[in-house]
Nucleic acid binder design. Structure first.
Lengths: 142, 142
DNA sequence: TTTAATGCAAACATTTTGCACCCTG
DNA sequence: CAGGGTGCAAAATGTTTGCATTAAA
């Protein structure tokens, strides 16, 4: 996480921006709970419970920077808002989402990255990232 | 398409709802141009150009019914609104999206469905549908 | 001490909903 | 003709932005 924070700082510096205390707090909240996938509101509430009152505007602004930097990715879990997780989006993993209870499980499988790379090559696409969501019903709910 | 329209009618009937002229028009607009992936506004404009003035409210209400019926799926192309395409979401295909020009190419690959089925089995999920978006730069834009 | 960051409230974009009237079965 | 469908406008979400104030480098 120290390393990623330095990368974020480098990204900001390269654009003439600053690594503030507030930005570092948001960064750490995301990176210290990688499996949480919070949305902007949840992130604000988690920060608030830690004693940090940060406005939604700032949270959104910081999230946008983090996504642009490539250190955080935005994921669509089938709701009408975005969730966020640490990690570069190229990382070959997806999410299993339970349509009943909303539980989210991560998975990764080497074949998927391979297949996608092959498809990109065949169609002449230079790939940047991908997003794979699988919806269904988990053990408890089905 | 005739068959799917009958399926939609059956779905509506099973819920005490009606297949109206307006609903059929929306249905046909989606199914007669399967590769268009319109969003709600585009759909309204396309219908308008065909001489049919249908409100956005009705378009959204009908799209929700179509998605619930399983005959249409909602896709996230990385913008802040949904796009729609005919077809049950289980169909093993994804979208290649160019981050520069916005072009969308469909692809399908038997391995992907297979891998996903295996993952669902291992994690005890009964799978319903999946959504796979790959972002990158197309031949012309890279 | 200059320039960017923050909070607040207002603006925006997308989608949903309440209600009066219309149409389908 | 009863009950659902539609359009309109208003409301509800989620996200962005303008501006005055605060803080980082």
């Amino acid at each position: 996480m120290k390393r990623e924070l330095r990368q974020f700082q480098a990204f900001l510096r390269s654009r003439g921006l600053k690594l503030t205390r507030t930005r570092a707090l948001i960064f750490k909240k995301i990176f210290s709970h990688p499996s949480v996938h919070p949305n902007a509101y949840e992130l604000r509430d988690r920060l608030r419970r830690s004693g940090h009152h940060i406005s939604l505007a700032t949270i959104y602004r910081t999230l946008n920077l983090l996504v642009k930097s490539g250190l955080v990715s935005s994921i669509d879990l089938g709701e009408n808002h975005s969730h966020f997780e640490p990690g570069r989006p190229r990382t070959a993993h997806g999410h299993l989402i339970c349509l009943a209870c909303g539980r989210v499980l991560e998975f990764s499988h080497p074949d998927i990255q391979e297949t996608i790379d092959a498809i990109g090559q065949k169609r002449g696409f230079r790939l940047d990232k991908f997003s794979l969501q699988v919806f269904g019903f988990c053990e408890k709910c089905r």
